[in-house]
Design a protein around this nucleic acid. Structure first.
Lengths: 213, 213
DNA sequence: TTTACTTTAAAACAAACGTTTGATACACTT
DNA sequence: AAGTGTATCAAACGTTTGTTTTAAAGTAAA
């Protein structure tokens, strides 16, 4: 049992490091985040990063866990509603994970940040998270607009939906200056989700009409 | 006249510095761009940056010139077509400036980059460029959907339009991995502009219906 | 207690950054 | 011809970064 205590102590610092890393990385991004700041918040020595993980980059990779994002897609797929309804649900849940600061879902923010400033682990993130949920939305869109849509146009529809969602996160520094009073509270996120949902469904319907006139 | 020669030589290095800075800043962003790289490309000494400008930041501020972006808005306003048509024109021209690598319009890319990684001159950029063109699009949207729309909903419409456009630039590293063959040539940009235009006009019509049922 | 191993700690390392220095070359004025 | 101010240059400065080192402390087994 003493062994367990020792391991658990060691695991404690490892976990503290991971927790602090998640926070700092999501706040400052991979590049701006410093190992010193992470260790300071975790209250561990600077050398701990290279002791438990081998590098800052490996620590960053270790903080990645996109399961909640992917289970979101699965759960929505299991719901037996129509494609339109599922798309609305996805937009809502995705925005919640993306914008709600209270909810613990830093993974989504990593994904968002990676779009703008790619890090060495971008490949992993694209493969494990971004590609699957893009595919998920692409499937929904194809169901909605019909199978006659071309690959290129389908891709643009997916980009239109993600672009609208991501702008609220990417543009946050700018949006904050344009509209200082705007806060992403629960009510605002609901309103944004409804807007993007309505806007996109109407857009998709138009694209569908363009395809088979 | 000898004085003129001397001054013009001096101006030459100053201009070479500015030109190189525009390129490097737009390629790598403010933070990632190094003074050494800028000077290397301009073929001037490192000290030139702090000699002609006082700092890297002031050099960056000196590269900013949003006139072409604002004249774009004015030109579109002078056209006497309907609001829908003017919005389509704006989306097209904006995307051209944003995505076309051949056309020399780094300013738009600065604006885009600033969204994701704000620099100390973000305030200036928001004030001089982003706020005006957001206002420009907001006016167009209000013309299209009618005056009953709330400020909040109007804001979301503008974000939807810019979000769609910006995603192609912000998401470029990711998009490149998702669709390696995709290139932003002239034809592709035209297709993107048409897609976002159709998608958005349909979205706006839907929002208008929501407002006055 | 002694031994072997793991974990922590402070300090130093090497590299990269923006910036500054001090010397040098040049053009122009007096 | 001497003096003045400007432009350029190589070199170094002071920080900050991720990483490594080296030794001490702690822990479990012999």
């Amino acid at each position: 049992m003493i062994t367990e205590t020792k391991i658990s102590l060691s695991e404690q610092t490892r976990e503290r490091l991971l927790a602090a890393a998640r926070v700092v990385f999501s706040e400052s991004g991979f590049q701006n985040a410093t190992v010193r700041e992470i260790c300071r918040r975790a209250e561990v020595n600077i050398a701990a990063v290279n002791y438990y993980f081998n590098s800052k980059e490996a620590l960053f990779a270790a903080t990645l866990n996109f399961e909640p994002l992917l289970t979101l897609c699965k759960q929505i797929n299991q719901g037996s509603t129509c494609a339109q309804e599922r798309l609305l649900n996805f937009i809502h849940d995705f925005l919640m994970q993306l914008l709600d600061e209270k909810e613990f879902s830093v993974q989504c923010q990593f994904m968002a940040r990676e779009l703008a400033e790619p890090t060495p682990v971008l490949g992993k993130i694209v493969q494990e998270a971004i590609a699957p949920i893009h595919q998920f939305v692409a499937n929904l869109v194809r169901e909605i607009v019909g199978k006659k849509i071309s690959e290129a146009e389908l891709r643009r529809c997916v980009f239109s939906i993600f672009g609208q969602c991501m702008y609220y996160r990417h543009g946050q520094p700018v949006i904050q200056r344009l509209h200082p009073k705007l806060r992403y509270d629960h009510r605002e996120i609901e309103a944004i989700a409804k807007h993007i949902g309505d806007f996109s469904l109407a857009g998709l319907k138009q694209i569908a009409q363009n395809q088979c006139p």
